[in-house]
Design a protein around this nucleic acid. Structure first.
Lengths: 151, 151
DNA sequence: TATTGTTATACTCTATAACTATA
DNA sequence: TATAGTTATAGAGTATAACAATA
């Protein structure tokens, strides 16, 4: 939305990795936001649904650590998802300090559709790369982040 | 900073491009901030210095468009750089609406050293990739962003 | 009337501290 | 004491609107 009056960046910027990654990140954020809009979801909310689908019922703190945020942010995220009827909170009987969060049936359906839409946004983002280039790009990101060695 | 209590992300997240790029971006931001700290510069301030070095004396608006931000943000950036003695503002005689901003001698010296430090941070970010992988990674970012010149 | 710089304002995202209830 | 959830607050970062000076 802030792209109206932007001139083409010069080489002094396009040779900077930081500039390129920032722009790429912003572009993917925009594409993803557009793809998730019909579902009333943000990218962060989809990340929570991904975790709940993968782990099953999960405490708010465990989910927060899993996506790399903190407790206080997770409260708001779960608030939003619960308001939309996609998840429910339940006090855990064995430890009543914990709220176990789980997907509702509707939540699972929305999740699957939203994930597909997000996949399509990723594909659009990568559309100018060949299959093998896209695979390399993904692999190199994993390497840079140290997620590929089973460390 | 917020990494102490973070558990390893699961495949449900590490297979998402958005998650990977966000993390990569954050990592590079951290490395760059650390590298620029001795110079009292932020990444955005370095971007302004890069533009001023490449283009020579430049109006605030032209510089803003070049780095993809707006006038109001540029005011604050130039305020900071001027306070540090790295740039000076001068009203343009031919069009007194325009502030032409240029590097001081000290500003140029700081810029060169800070750019080298930022280069080193980028190299550290890419250290687990081979030379050719790093070059591919850069090239693929350019392609995805449509900055490919097809050189 | 349009452009450039400026200020003020608001809005998002996130981080920190403190409070509650449970353990 | 420590932990999980919650609330309130503040701090970046950025976007929008309005104003002053100039064209």
């Amino acid at each position: 939305m802030s792209r109206e009056s932007e001139t083409a960046p010069g080489v002094e910027l396009t040779t900077r990795l930081g500039y390129l990654i920032k722009r790429a990140h912003q572009r993917l954020i925009e594409l993803t936001a557009l793809a998730l809009e019909p579902f009333g979801l943000t990218g962060r909310e989809l990340a929570v649904l991904l975790v709940l689908d993968a782990l099953g019922p999960t405490s708010q703190l465990a989910a927060a650590k899993r996506i790399g945020t903190d407790r206080t942010t997770m409260v708001g995220l779960i608030d939003g998802l619960e308001l939309k009827g996609l998840v429910v909170r339940e006090r855990l009987a064995e430890d009543r300090r914990k709220n176990v969060v789980r997907l509702t049936v509707a939540g699972h359906g929305t999740f699957v559709a939203a994930r597909d839409a997000s996949d399509a946004a990723e594909a659009a983002f990568l559309q100018d790369l060949s299959e093998s280039e896209a695979a390399q790009f993904r692999s190199q990101l994993l390497t840079v982040l140290g997620f590929d060695t089973g460390d």
